[in-house]
Nucleic acid binder design. Structure first.
Lengths: 128, 128
DNA sequence: CACAACCCTAGAGTATACTCTACACTCGTT
DNA sequence: AACGAGTGTAGAGTATACTCTAGGGTTGTG
């Protein structure tokens, strides 16, 4: 499979695919090149990209995705280790959620103040 | 007030303060320099930075903060306009919260699977 | 054989918010 | 006068995830 087909099937741009290669998320064995130097992507790449997408959709970064995939392929990712990793991530996500909740509250208050005529943001800057 | 004092009072690094200057979030009139070329920051800068901090703490970016401050100083920021702006931001925040909630659920499921022995992340990559 | 549509690499650009480095001048103290 | 600490500018580096450009070769169709 050439990069164009892969891009179309994965709904990623060629640029993104090459970018993933640079990051080491995808590997193409140097041998699997056509005579014209075009890269021949194995079927695996498709499921690899699916995995990357599913992992990142779960809130992991690309680097983390690479780490996870490597661990799994090495067979080093036992449930206990995985759990530790996931719990750590969960805490981060929870923190982000808390931050956003605070932000949302602030926004709601400010929006309300816009109606009652006391705009908080305005006050912030006007007061010297 | 020199930059060192300002940095100490605002709890920002000198670098950050200069960075804010570059972004136009803070202005120092060219006249208010000491003979030795040191910048003399007016008291206002302190409240300006406080405003920036409070605005960004509410989930706005630095650019947005600059925009808000400019609008307010221009007196152009009437409640209706402000409300529109805030509601738009609220929607973005809500979207981020929804995304994070989904991520959190996925994490919880995966963590649970670690205990029951069916690790989802593992499955993702193992299946070809 | 021209031309579009594909492929290759290397590297720059975008966005956000810093963070740090290099190099040079200035201030206060010893 | 030497020293550390403070200040100035300009510009590079960090992190994340792309996105695009330049410059070049290849393939297939009319």
């Amino acid at each position: 499979m050439l990069i164009g087909e892969l891009a179309q099937k994965t709904n990623l741009s060629r640029h993104t695919i090459r970018f993933y290669e640079k990051l080491g998320l995808i590997q193409v064995p140097e041998k699997s090149r056509r005579k014209n130097n075009y890269k021949e992507y194995p079927e695996e790449t498709l499921s690899r990209i699916t995995a990357i997408k599913e992992i990142t959709a779960r809130g992991f970064t690309l680097k983390e995705a690479r780490g996870i995939i490597t661990l799994i392929n090495d067979g080093t990712l036992d449930p206990q280790r995985a759990k530790k990793y996931l719990v750590k991530k969960l805490k981060l996500v929870q923190k982000q959620m808390d931050d956003l909740a605070r932000t949302k509250n602030n926004l709601l208050i400010m929006i309300d103040q816009c109606d009652t005529g006391v705009c908080d943001v305005t006050r912030l800057v006007r007061e010297k």
